[in-house]
Amino acid sequence: MSEAKNAYGLMAEFETPAEILRAAAMIRDAGYLHWDVFTPFPVHGMNHAMGLKGSRVGWFSFIGGVLGYWSGMLMIWYMNAHDYAIPVGGKPMFSPFFSFPPSFELTILLGAFGALFGMLYTNQLPRLYHPLLKNPRFKRVTHDGFFIVIEAGDPKYSEAEARRLLESAGSRHIEQVEE
């Protein structure tokens, strides 16, 4: 067996966005599940080529926004109308109108935190250790390298099979990545 005991997967290098876009579509069609494309910038059309669904980040942001708005309204009602009412100029103790600006700002604030934490959660970041980050060739991914990695954990994974597929997809350099 050429397969190392703890192989992370097979890493193939490509030269251009067009090449990797075609290759990704081939791997998607071959039915792999645990694989990924690594690029220095988001390649237009790659989500479709990989068969990815839309992101769930929007939900996190939405929940953050709703939470922000109502906590603002509730806070102002509690402080200015319930806990310590201060009558000012015969104005109502609570009104959704004067409460709107702070509540709106809190909507934005918690919505933005929702987007950030939603992105980190869906991406499982921060993850400071990653087998790929140990690979010296992989450093090019933030420079001008385009990589496809088929993980050894994929139910269909066999090294020979995956290597053949990546070769036929036009990769010029394929190597195994250790865990």
Binding site: P42, G58, N123, H130
Partner: peptide, 20 residues
């Protein structure tokens, strides 16, 4: 944060950026 340029990450990242 351990960014690798994964396209699965770019997918969520770009959405988060759009929302922001």
């Amino acid at each position: 944060l351990g960014w690798t340029g994964s396209n699965r990450h770019w997918n969520n990242y770009e959405r988060a950026y759009l929302i922001l």
